[in-house]
């Protein structure tokens, strides 16, 4: 596989995971941007453990994911049932706090960052193949779990909260527990993405984890469609790859194009390009064809 294709696919996998980490709590109407902070914390954790204590990749990956989940859980104790705007503010605050702490602690490399994160495999090519397979295995696993959740009773309860929180409460849905569960899960996905990011990029700095990730993942989720996992899955590679093929004269309009795209999609199709009814329709067509065969 060519090197540019590898980096394109590897980073696309991270964007898919990060967009899903925003999708998960948005099932109950919460924009939980804290996952970007989780990404940074776990990336730094992974780098430090791998460099200083020679922890193997799998151990770092599991520990980084659990660390994300733990932080997400602790915070969710306070904001599990908070309204969307409060969750947004907490998320932004955490991103800012994390960045400031990392910049000011020498052990984390300060503003300079951390260099030379070791390879998982001996050679560069085998390392790339390994990381790519791992990244997409994790995308598949996460996608599968979200799909299972969406079709479960819990998923239906989350949909009820999204549509009408009071109505959901009257049906006996525990809004706080649901919010806590989804926030912790999203933070775990954020942490997992951070570990992958650190090993793929091989060096990290506080400037790698800023509000630009929130902007990109939000666009991916809302353009692709926020009511189903397929939206981010489709939009992430397209929107990430789009600036790479844009002619130089249009490069400076990149952000404007992103913004216009987001506005147009929100106006024309507020639920995004791929919606849940669209998926159901596709599924029923496929099912009918299968029956005919």
């Amino acid at each position: 596989m060519s090197l540019p294709l590898y980096y394109f696919l590897a980073i696309a996998a991270i964007y898919i995971l990060m967009s899903w980490s925003i999708y998960i709590p948005y099932r109950v109407g919460q924009l939980h941007f804290m996952t970007v902070a989780n990404m940074a914390i776990s990336a730094y954790f992974a780098a430090l453990m791998a460099i200083n204590f020679s922890w193997p990749f799998w151990l770092v990956l599991i520990a980084g994911t659990l660390l994300g989940a733990l932080i997400g859980f602790l915070v969710s104790l306070a904001i599990g049932d908070a309204p969307c705007f409060a969750v947004v503010i907490v998320g932004f605050t955490f991103i800012y706090l994390t960045k400031t702490i990392i910049e000011n602690v020498e052990a984390f490399g300060g503003p300079l960052g951390i260099f030379s994160i070791p390879k998982v495999m001996q050679t560069s090519s085998s390392n790339r193949v390994f990381l790519l397979i791992t990244a997409y295995a994790l995308v598949l696993l996460t996608g599968y779990l979200i799909k299972r959740f969406d079709r479960s009773r819990l998923g239906r309860a989350a949909s009820a909260i999204f549509i009408d929180r009071d109505l959901a409460v009257s049906f006996g849905v525990d809004v706080k527990k649901m919010g806590m569960f989804l926030q912790s899960w999203a933070s775990a996905v954020g942490g997992m993405s951070g570990v992958l990011y650190a090993f793929i990029m091989q060096s990290i700095s506080p400037n790698h984890f800023t509000f630009h990730i929130v902007g990109i993942c939000m666009t991916m989720l809302f353009v692709g469609g926020y009511s189903t996992i397929w939206g981010a899955l489709l939009a992430a590679p397209i929107l990430w790859g789009f600036p790479l093929i844009l002619p130089e004269v249009l490069q400076s309009w990149n952000i404007v194009i992103y913004g216009v795209l987001l506005i147009v999609v929100l106006v024309i199709k507020p639920e995004g390009i791929i919606t849940r009814p669209m998926i159901k329709k596709l599924e029923s067509i496929l099912l009918r064809k299968k029956k005919l065969v």
Binding site: F8, I11, P243
Partner: peptide
């Protein structure tokens, strides 16, 4: 040859990987 990264580390990796060959 002008190669714009737009200050994005992610874009920088892809652009650099196009050049190494």
């Amino acid at each position: 040859v002008r190669v714009d990264t737009g200050m994005s580390p992610e874009k920088g990796t892809v652009e650099m990987s196009k050049l190494v060959a």
